[in-house]
Amino acid sequence: MNASDARAWMERFFAAFDREQQALTDLDRRSGDGDFGANVRFALGRARAALDAAETATPGDVFDVVSAAFLNTGGTSGPLFGMWFRHLAKATRAGTVGVAELARGFADATATVQRLGGARPGDKTMVDALVPAGEALAAASGDLREALAAAAAAARSGAESTAELVARRGRASYVGEVARGVLDPGAVTVALLVEAACG
């Protein structure tokens, strides 16, 4: 993966989120305060504009731009996604990166999100998709396409698993059983992100 590949990944993610924004907002209305879709849309709009104006020599440069856009966004998810991308950027500073660098970046980034947010798998948060995606990357062979496909499948499975969980972190934890049966929008967004890496 080079800088051009990373840009294409982000563009596919932006488009996927645009398609799913209303559904994600509806999920957040049922389990949180309903601002998730608007906050992430704002961050991705800033990221699009910044990438258009930026020169990026490495995948890490691309992820730095996206990180900054999220860090300047309100809500809880914006800063967490921002820190996640920041740590992914640190592991992907070379002109071309492979499975090992991405796996290390995912692991470091997800550990940071867990440290900041205090969430673990099973808490009905974005972590439920991030952790299995990172584990799939870490277990993958050297073929990047196959590794990303495995990570995407793991992220989607993790996101789907949040439907039957009772939240222990985030806004959904305030409503308890009311949110049972509702997918966590943060986890679904992670699934969209990792799926977009597959092209």
Results as ranks from 00 to 15, higher is better:
R171P: 03
T58R: 05
F70R: 02
A151H: 07
L27M: 14
L27Q: 11
V62H: 04
Q114I: 10
A152W: 01
E55Q: 13
T112V: 11
S157E: 15
A147N: 04
V175M: 13
A111W: 02
R168F: 03
G37P: 09
L71S: 10
S173I: 07
V178K: 15
G176A: 10
Q21Y: 00
V113Y: 05
R86W: 02
G95F: 00
K90F: 05
R7I: 14
G74N: 05
G158W: 11
D143Y: 13
T110I: 06
G158T: 07
G34N: 12
R48I: 11
A100N: 06
Y174K: 14
L193S: 02
G32A: 13
G75I: 01
L192T: 04
S141G: 15
D35N: 06
L88F: 07
A129G: 04
Y174Q: 14
F36P: 00
S173Y: 10
A91P: 10
A155V: 11
S67F: 00
V65A: 09
R115W: 11
R169M: 04
N72P: 00
A23E: 12
K124M: 12
A149L: 13
F63A: 06
R46H: 11
D18E: 15
L27C: 08
V62W: 01
M1A: 12
E195V: 10
Y174N: 13
S173D: 12
A154V: 11
M83L: 14
S4M: 06
T25H: 06
E101I: 05
V40I: 15
E177Q: 14
N39D: 12
T110Q: 05
A187P: 05
V40K: 01
A159I: 11
D108V: 14
L130E: 09
W9V: 11
P121E: 15
L137F: 09
D108C: 01
P132D: 08
V113E: 06
A147I: 11
L144G: 01
A119H: 06
L88I: 12
A23P: 00
G170V: 13
G122K: 10
E195Q: 10
P79Q: 10
G105W: 03
A119N: 08
G199Q: 07
A149P: 00
S77F: 06
D28L: 01
G122V: 12
R41C: 07
C198G: 03
A43K: 02
W9A: 12
L71T: 05
E135L: 09
F14Q: 01
V127H: 09
D61M: 00
F17T: 02
L24I: 08
R12G: 12
R171D: 04
R86P: 01
A196M: 03
G78Q: 02
A53Y: 02
D28M: 03
D184P: 00
